[in-house]
Design a protein around this nucleic acid. Structure first.
Length: 491
RNA sequence: GACCCAUUAGCUCAGGAGGUAGAGCACUUGACUUUUAAUCAAGGUGUCCGGCGUUCGAAUCGCCGAUGGGUCACCA
């Protein structure tokens, strides 16, 4: 709100109240600190001991019921809401009159005694009330809250005030991330930080955001993955590392994609992708148990059982199960393309056996993978950083985890052969030159690191936002990101 | 990027077969010393998303645009 703008009546009333307080030397914005002794939740949890004992609480006025010489209000603090009882005899005439001018949305501190009302609600009988901050705008309606999705995302601070479920989601998000850290730290993993600004955008197939460094006068990329730096650290001798961090991909936005999102990638020397599967299912089922209290959860009306063990099948087996096509029995790309066409899956005229397998999987299998399922052994064409299978060079030691039809994790036995890796990069470069701007870029220093020598290593990446969606039953990725990417409004 | 839907008071929403807009909450004033969607009485809410057009008249109809949501495409 800028100066000179016409204020509507609601705003004007609050400005006037503030001006009056300032004139009387009671400017709430002059207050610098306050010392609450209790959260609302602590009072509820310990009522027996706290009854009739003095407490100091602080929070936002969410409702107000004035009945002449006595009033009730609800105060929202970080842990919840508690009622206060405000009576003229306790406060005195002047303080009581001033309290009556406070608005819903104002932040107050309350000193008083814990008690239970005649109707049985645990409350605080106010002895003194201090206005700690004046709210100059009205809050959304108490009963329906804030529903407008646009406003909820743009003004998340209001959303958090009036929609308790939103607070819960982000508390759980925090617990999930803390749970992951605890799990990995207790198993000897080292948390590290690698650059966000990259000279080459590698480790995934995605268009990057480009930015510019002024002093060096070079364009740089925001990272699209943490993979290649973390593997350099395995080369360096840290045998178990992980990074939880923001990833940026310049792609479309929908209920599963936000341009910036959070991933965890971890790498473990001397381990393979089977170890990564064990770790993945143990980690996620542990999080569900510890944070939600159950391994059986509901996502958008569907029951999901996260109890171990989870189904493991190869991509070839999955395609066979859901299409009847046995890709193992097919040797030529030509025959594979004919089979795809037969079941109505569009593939290019030059599609390889592996590309056909991947297309069949994506179009015919993914939508069936509701319960947690590891899909193993991805084609080499779509896995430029994964180790080739010894018994079938068309495939790699790679898996993805699917839950509720969505990819949640991606892992490989990491490719550590520098010569093979260089050839894979060159193939990616050829694709890039052929117009695929999501193909990997050549990363000579990463090849150099592999030449120095990387032990056999298992690597795993999990989309934290999607994991939080699953564990909080959130429909959209925007419901688990505090400030999702929004177009600016033109006013 | 394509298509569909939405946008009305601070919030949640009605309404409008074209005649200048309504409810509840919130707000203001008054009554009320245990209420809790407090109650009772009285009162004012407004760029009907923006622009252009049709029309005597547009919030309503048409076109263009903005933002959001959804579906699809893209995202191996």
């Amino acid at each position: 709100m800028t100066q000179g703008e016409e204020l509507n009546e609601l705003l004007k009333v609050r400005r006037d109240k503030l001006a009056k307080l300032q004139k009387e030397g009671k400017n709430p914005f002059h207050i610098t600190r306050f010392d609450p002794t209790s959260y609302s939740q602590q009072i509820f949890d310990n009522f027996e001991e706290m009854e009739e004992k003095p407490v100091v609480i602080a929070g936002r006025i969410m409702s107000k019921r004035i009945m002449g010489k006595a009033s009730f209000a609800h105060i929202l603090d970080a842990k919840g809401q508690i009622q206060i009882y405000v009576q003229i005899n306790e406060l005195g005439q002047d303080a009581y009159d001033e309290f009556k001018t406070y608005d819903i949305g104002d932040i107050i501190g309350v000193e008083g005694a814990v008690f239970k009302t005649h109707k049985g609600e645990i409350s605080v009988r106010a002895k003194t009330i201090t206005l700690l901050s004046k709210s100059l705008q009205p809050l959304p309606e108490k009963w329906h809250g804030l529903k407008d999705v646009d406003l909820r995302y743009r003004q998340r601070y209001v959303d958090l005030i009036v929609n308790p479920d939103v607070r819960r989601t982000f508390v759980i998000r925090s617990r999930i991330i803390r749970g992951i850290r605890n799990y990995l730290d207790s198993r000897g993993f080292l948390e590290v930080e690698t650059p966000v600004l990259h000279n080459t955008a590698g480790g995934a197939a995605a268009r990057p955001f480009i930015t510019h460094h002024n002093t060096l006068d070079i364009d740089m990329y925001l990272r699209i993955a943490t993979e290649l730096h973390l593997k350099r650290l395995i080369v360096g001798g840290f045998d178990k590392v992980y990074e939880i961090g923001r990833i940026f991909r310049n792609e479309g936005m929908d209920i599963k994609h936000n341009p910036e999102f959070t991933s965890i990638e971890l790498y473990q020397a001397y381990a393979d992708y089977h170890d990564m599967m064990d770790l993945t299912e143990d980690l996620i089922s542990t999080l569900a148990r510890d944070i939600l209290g159950s391994e059986v959860i509901t996502y958008q009306g569907e029951e999901i059982n996260l109890a171990r063990p989870w189904t493991r099948m190869t991509m070839v087996e999955a395609v066979k199960k859901y299409t009847g096509i046995d890709m193992d029995a097919i040797d030529s790309a030509e025959q594979a393309r004919a089979e795809a066409k037969r079941v109505g899956v569009d593939v290019g005229v030059k599609a390889t056996w592996g590309e056909v397998l991947n297309a069949l999987f994506e179009e015919k299998v993914e939508d069936n993978l509701v319960q947690p399922t590891f899909i193993m052994d991805y084609p080499i064409e779509v896995s430029p950083l994964a180790k080739r299978k010894l018994d079938d060079p068309r495939l790699t030691y790679r898996f993805e985890l699917f839950v509720t039809r969505r990819e949640l994790a991606n892992a490989f036995s990491e490719l550590n052969d520098p010569i093979d890796q260089k050839e894979r990069f060159l193939e990616q470069v050829r694709q890039r030159e052929a117009g695929n701007d999501e193909a990997e870029m050549m990363d000579e220093d990463f090849i150099n690191a592999l030449e120095i020598g990387m032990p056999p290593t298992g690597g795993l990446g999990i989309g934290i936002d999607r994991l939080v969606m699953l564990l909080t039953d959130s429909y959209s990725i925007r419901d688990v990101i505090l400030f999702p990417t929004m177009k600016p409004r033109e006013d």
